[in-house]
Design a protein around this nucleic acid. Structure first.
Lengths: 234, 234
DNA sequence: GAGTGGTCTAGACCACCTG
DNA sequence: AGGTGGTCTAGACCACTCA
């Protein structure tokens, strides 16, 4: 005899999560199969499947054919980080956004750049440096290399009306990225540009962007460390 | 007349993504409804639904009842960041992990701590400081506050065999966290502990953890900035 | 009110993994 | 070889939201 309680996959998901959180099902335990759960919840197997699939996506359980579904021995934590566009970040604070193109030079890939972009020797690369301002004060120093083999149109862009970042996002909207965060000390040039002291703390973001294994751009972003924070919830 | 091509939701997902990436469907465009797509792919509507649902979860499209599915005007990027446990991070590098408990004191919440933990005045808080070592060298300095109202058992823990972090994870495995990353300069105490110079760069992670709106712990982690990097792909 | 996505069902077949 | 999850189908009803 079935329970006639109406259940959606969300209720089932919540119920299973509850059992895990309270420790009724502990990490490492194998939980009942879809068929059994479907019967006990009085719903079809597909509904249970969806609940379990989503719990697996979130990392609460691990599923394998034949051996069944287990509660994860969760150790590493996944956090979702939103990397904002500088302009939006500044405007969100109610400040006025401006940016200044410092220079734009076509170069041949040096060793460092070749490593960053993964391009071959002597590949044409556009080096762009600019400064982003919030209410007229330096906010971020951007040091960027663009792979001209992949994005030749960048050569003809002045980057006066639109920043390289936004231009690239518009041009190649769907790419993969790798972000690296670190801390460093301001050297003389950076200090001057950001109007801070030599030796002040910098928060550094390095981003490499590619599409279909071909590198598009690599960028180094430096923020005055005393004021900048990046936050993620989850 | 239907195409008889066999399609799984993954193929459909890939096909739609392709149409978006090549610009055939541009940001802002409304794409055909599930019914139409199902017909053109020669599959059932549920299959198309799953493909679209997953694309919506990833942020490529936005869906609304009645008005349909649109290609996102994607601006901010979501990156998945994995915050490792120190011990696992060190061991993954092939180094030997050790940790030293510096001190452990029960205090009454100061203003700073009250703000971090969101507890009331004079709430009992455990302040723990420790140092994590890789191959005997300082790797991370941990400054932690634990809400004793929520985790009274922490009072009786010596934190000699197991670090506060791992103990808490075992005790309260499913909690929410907020991470904040920033850069700072080493003060005298931190420099001494991490065996670096005063004024060297520090990479700072602050994490606040809570469960059901009740704060469990807040921690400040400091790494020598010259060597530490945190990377996310996606 | 009507159109679109959101979800459910029952039954089926497949694919993978483990014993 | 058999058990478990993975996916598909056809049809159905619901819920939201826009006009």
């Amino acid at each position: 005899m079935r329970k006639k309680t109406k259940s959606s996959f969300q209720d089932i998901k919540a119920d299973i999560l509850e059992k895990i959180k309270t420790g009724l099902w502990s990490p490492g335990d194998t939980i009942p199969g879809e068929e059994k759960l479907a019967e006990s919840y009085g719903c079809s197997r597909v509904t249970v499947n969806r609940a379990l699939r989503e719990l697996a996506e979130t990392g609460f359980v691990e599923r394998r054919r034949k051996s069944g579904t287990r509660v994860s021995e969760k150790t590493v934590r996944d956090a979702r980080l939103q990397i904002p566009i500088v302009r939006e970040e500044i405007e969100a604070k109610g400040a006025k956004y401006q940016f200044v193109l410092l220079d734009k030079t076509e170069i041949q890939a040096t060793d460092k750049v070749r490593r960053l972009l993964g391009v071959s020797e002597n590949a044409p690369v556009l080096h762009v440096r600019c400064l982003h301002l919030a209410d007229g004060r330096p906010y971020q120093y951007e040091n960027r290399w663009i792979n001209l083999e992949k994005v030749p149109a960048a050569r003809d862009q002045t980057f006066e009306a639109i920043s390289p970042n936004e231009w690239l996002i518009r041009k190649e909207p769907f790419s993969n990225a790798e972000h690296t965060f670190s801390a460093a000390l301001a050297d003389e040039e950076t200090a001057k540009l950001l109007e801070i002291e030599v030796g002040d703390a910098l928060f550094v973001v390095e981003r490499r962007t590619w599409q279909d294994d071909a590198s598009i751009t690599a960028v180094e972003l430096k923020f005055p460390g005393a004021s900048y924070k990046m936050t993620s919830r989850g």
